[in-house]
Amino acid sequence: MRQAARRAAVLGSPIEHSLSPVLHRAAYRELGLDDWSYDRFEVDEAALPAFVGELDASWAGLSLTMPLKRAVIPLLDSVSDTAASVEAVNTVVRTGDGRLVGDNTDIPGIVAALHERGVEKVPAAAILGAGATASSALAALARICTGEVTAYVRSTARAEEMRQWGDRLGVAVRTADWADAADALGAPLVIATTPAGTTDALAERVPDAPGVLFDVLYDPWPTALAAAWDRRGGRLVGGLDLLVHQAVLQVGQMTGRPGPLAAMRAAGERALAER
């Protein structure tokens, strides 16, 4: 008996540059899910309740990007402990009985991307930035960092937020002023969570024999900091690694079959090369 067509999509605002359709469609091709479709929709917080309310049995799930990761929570039937820990949902699965279940695959995606590059445990780490991605980075570090995490931020309010996240996640967090961000570059693991261009001035401050840099950006790539890090012989983990690993987990949850990592990464690399 032929399986009914299934739908999935990524929602956010802005959404036109999202690579999620490329990755998920590549997964469907590899898995032979010919009746599955994956689209993108421009949806802001005001429009989200109506969109979610109209999901019918053809929908397998949703990927969510900013600014919807927190706004979607009240619209769901349940949320995983992982998503609740950072109050952010990037994955919604519609179950067979019509329930909407939220999860966060960014956190295990960060861990998986680091594991792929041979980073299993670190004695300390530094985070550049204090936005939503920084809280997910802290949650990931709760799983792999055995010591203190230093967060470099621009304001006292952001510093307090990062300390509160640390207390909530069980991570020892020390905060430092952004003016001293070059000090972060000596950490065994540096996670840069800032917008494009923010860390460019740090490129000339990369030390000899640096540790691991995880820069969450993927376009443009490499960033000035990542390029300098690579020249100095440090290990790099990029935003595409995170995007692919979290999407692999989403595909698994929505289809019930493991996401094909190699096919999804290759599709993402091709799409970025064409931009």
Score class of each variant (00 low, 15 high):
175 T>S: 13
74 P>F: 06
122 V>C: 01
223 T>H: 04
169 L>G: 11
251 V>S: 08
134 A>Y: 06
67 P>H: 04
176 A>K: 14
5 A>M: 08
161 E>R: 15
265 R>S: 02
89 V>R: 09
107 I>N: 06
139 A>E: 05
36 W>M: 08
90 N>L: 14
11 L>C: 01
135 S>I: 10
20 S>L: 11
142 A>Y: 08
58 S>T: 15
154 R>K: 11
118 G>H: 03
98 G>P: 13
11 L>R: 00
94 R>K: 01
8 A>N: 10
171 V>F: 09
246 Q>H: 06
173 V>K: 08
44 D>G: 14
195 P>F: 03
208 D>P: 02
161 E>L: 15
47 A>I: 06
227 A>V: 08
38 Y>K: 09
191 I>T: 05
36 W>H: 14
130 A>H: 10
58 S>P: 00
243 L>H: 05
103 D>R: 11
158 R>S: 15
202 L>H: 02
77 D>N: 13
67 P>F: 07
85 S>W: 05
89 V>K: 10
130 A>D: 10
270 R>Y: 00
6 R>I: 00
80 S>M: 06
132 A>V: 14
87 E>T: 14
227 A>N: 10
245 H>F: 08
35 D>F: 01
124 A>C: 07
49 P>D: 07
58 S>K: 09
2 R>Q: 08
149 V>I: 12
101 V>A: 11
184 A>Y: 01
275 R>P: 12
197 G>W: 02
114 L>T: 01
52 V>A: 09
203 A>G: 08
30 E>G: 02
233 G>T: 07
190 V>Y: 01
227 A>H: 10
199 T>P: 01
47 A>Y: 01
243 L>N: 07
106 D>Y: 12
31 L>M: 11
58 S>L: 04
140 A>H: 07
167 D>E: 15
251 V>K: 05
80 S>F: 01
14 P>F: 07
89 V>F: 12
31 L>Q: 11
9 A>T: 03
216 V>W: 03
238 G>C: 14
200 D>P: 04
70 R>M: 08
236 L>V: 14
134 A>K: 07
267 A>D: 00
128 L>H: 01
221 W>A: 12
105 T>D: 11
172 A>L: 15
265 R>A: 06
192 A>E: 04
114 L>R: 01
59 W>Y: 09
183 D>A: 15
108 P>V: 08
167 D>V: 13
236 L>Q: 06
156 T>D: 15
62 L>R: 09
44 D>E: 00
137 A>Y: 03
61 G>M: 09
80 S>D: 06
154 R>L: 12
182 A>I: 04
170 G>D: 11
246 Q>W: 04
221 W>Q: 12
29 R>G: 00
87 E>Y: 00
168 R>K: 15
94 R>I: 05
261 L>V: 14
264 M>V: 00
202 L>Y: 02
180 D>V: 09
213 L>Y: 03
109 G>S: 09
33 L>C: 11
1 M>T: 04
269 E>C: 07
260 P>Q: 09
82 T>P: 02
260 P>V: 10
51 F>I: 11
190 V>G: 02
223 T>I: 07
129 G>Y: 01
43 V>H: 13
72 V>M: 12
44 D>R: 08
256 G>A: 13
157 A>I: 14
80 S>R: 05
31 L>K: 11
242 L>H: 03
253 Q>G: 12
211 G>Q: 05
16 E>L: 03
100 L>M: 13
66 M>F: 11
85 S>I: 06
179 A>E: 15
127 I>H: 02
150 T>W: 04
264 M>H: 00
182 A>D: 15
